[in-house]
C-alpha cells in the first residue's frame, strides 16, 4: 500500500504493508534514525515523534494512520538550526548517553508550545512517558524549565 504524508516539511510517499510501524518506516525507508527503539511497546518513549503537533510513540502507530498527516521527527525539530530545548539540554547537561534524548526533546518541545510557562510538576508529567536511565531527570527538568526563558517569552 502507498501512504502519503508530510515528514519534516517534505511530502513523502512510502510503499509498505499498511500495518508497518511508523518507526520502521522512518528508520528503514526514510533513513531517519534519530527516533530510537528502546522497547517496541510504547513504554520507553525513545521513538517519540510528533503527528500534527502531538507527541506519540511511533512504535505503536501503523503507517496507514499517518496518511495525510504532518510527521515531525527529531531531525526536523529545528531543521538546520537548534531548537531552544536542544540548546538548553546542551547547556544544562540534560543528555548523557543520548539514546532517550531525541524522544525527550520531542515531548519537551510539544509541552512548551502548548504551555510556555510550565511548572516543574507539569514538566514532570509531560516527560513521564520518556524513560531515561542516565540523568535521574534532574538536569533534563532544569533544562526544560529554562528553555522557556530562552524562547524570548
Amino acid at each position: 500500500m502507498i501512504t502519503r504524508f508530510v515528514c519534516n516539511g517534505q511530502p513523502v510517499e512510502v510503499e509498505t504493508p499498511p500495518m508497518t510501524r511508523l518507526l520502521d518506516v522512518l528508520r528503514e525507508e526514510l533513513r531517519l534514525t534519530g527516533s530510537k527503539e528502546g522497547c517496541g511497546e510504547g513504554e520507553c518513549g525513545a521513538c517519540t515523534v510528533r503527528i500534527d503537533g502531538v507527541p506519540v510513540m511511533s512504535c505503536l502507530v501503523p503507517v496507514a494512520q499517518v496518511a495525510g498527516c504532518n510527521v515531525q521527527t527529531i531531525e526536523g525539530l529545528a531543521g538546520a538550526l537548534v531548537h531552544p530545548v536542544q540548546a538548553a539540554m546542551l547547556e544544562h547537561g540534560g543528555a548523557q548517553c543520548g539514546i532517550c534524548t531525541p524522544g525527550l526533546c520531542m515531548s519537551a518541545a510539544a509541552l512548551l508550545e502548548e504551555n510556555p510557562h510550565p511548572s516543574v510538576e507539569q514538566v514532570r508529567v509531560a516527560l513521564a512517558g520518556n524513560l531515561c536511565r542516565c540523568t535521574g531527570y534532574q538536569k533534563v527538568i532544569e533544562a526544560v524549565s529554562h528553555a522557556l526563558v530562552d524562547t524570548g517569552e
Binding site: L90, G98, I99, P102
Partner: peptide, 11 residues
C-alpha cells in the same frame, strides 16, 4: 551533545 540532541549520532 549536539549530535545526540539532533538525532545525528549513530548507534
Amino acid at each position: 551533545g549536539l549530535s545526540k540532541l539532533t538525532g545525528r549520532a549513530l548507534y
